[in-house]
């Protein structure tokens, strides 16, 4: 028997009454998108420091215990370290010269920069997940995408697709858990060859694909049964002080990222 050593809990809501919890979901989406795009477009160290400062402020303000942080499995960290090692072998400037060899750290520095960037962007997504009910995302997206109606973009359909994808995620995770359990029970022998590993992965992926397709079909039938997608809900938006503070901070951070 094996214990579940890691727990991801991605996009899982933590009940609370913090200012971040009280913000409109659309504000949080704007903050995540704004900072995320800015820091990806300008991935310098100062830009990452600014983005990290905003993330730290959000983490402190949302008052969620850090025990809620995703705990990736150990192999994930090994994989990350291996990627770092590969980046180191790529070389590049700056270089350190010794009598025996020359070491280039350019690749490693790029890898560190990319990794910290990913952590920051995922950190924002985690805070969004902790403080936002999934059901609030649909109405918020409807408001945020409203300008796209001017160019006849299918806003209702886009919002419905995004909302359904997010809602389907727990179901899919549950089915994948069952698939993995079935595989373990019916083929408990650990593969010892590359071919065995590939076949193992193949079984899981095919099962996951079949499961996802079946779920998608069932959901499509359910939507048809209720008369189609219909217009997305347009709930009134009531911005409060935390929303204005977050939007002002984000604007200042984006300007600083671009200017610095």
């Amino acid at each position: 028997m094996t214990a579940a050593a890691s727990e991801l809990h991605f996009l899982r809501y933590v009940p609370g009454t913090s200012p971040v919890h009280k913000m409109w979901a659309g504000t949080k989406l704007l903050v995540v998108a704004g900072i995320g795009i800015a820091v990806v477009a300008v991935p310098t160290w100062p830009a990452q420091a600014i983005a990290f400062a905003v993330l730290a402020a959000a983490l402190i303000t949302c008052r969620v215990s850090l025990t809620a942080a995703p705990r990736p499995p150990l192999w994930f960290f090994y994989l990350l370290l291996f990627a770092g090692f590969l980046a180191l072998t790529a070389g590049g400037k700056p270089e350190v010269h010794t009598p025996a060899l020359t070491l280039g750290f350019g690749g490693l520095i790029d890898w560190i920069r990319f990794t910290t960037l990913t952590v920051i962007v995922l950190g924002f997504a985690v805070v969004l997940g902790w403080t936002t009910h999934l059901a609030d995302l649909g109405p918020a997206l409807t408001r945020l995408f409203a300008p796209l109606r001017l160019v006849r973009a299918p806003v209702d359909e886009i919002v419905a697709a995004v909302t359904l994808c997010v809602r389907c995620l727990p179901l899919l995770v549950d089915e994948l858990r069952t698939l993995y359990a079935v595989r373990r029970l019916r083929h408990p022998e650990v593969p010892t060859t590359v071919k065995g590993e590939i076949l193992n992965l193949h079984d899981l992926l095919v099962g996951a694909l079949v499961s996802a397709l079946r779920r998608a079909r069932e959901m499509a039938d359910a939507i048809d049964g209720r008369g189609g997608v219909g217009p997305a809900p347009r709930l009134p938006v009531r911005l409060r002080v935390p929303d204005y503070v977050a939007l002002a901070t984000t604007t200042a951070a984006i300007v600083a990222i671009v200017v610095i």
């Binding site: 028997m1 069952t178 359990a181 079935v182 373990r184 029970l185 408990p188």
Partner: peptide, 22 residues
Amino acid sequence: GPLSIEESHTAMAFQHARLQLL
């Protein structure tokens, strides 16, 4: 002794049979 999947001590039939047919 410990209950072991590796030694096929146990089996489980899940509610959604289709997920079990590989």
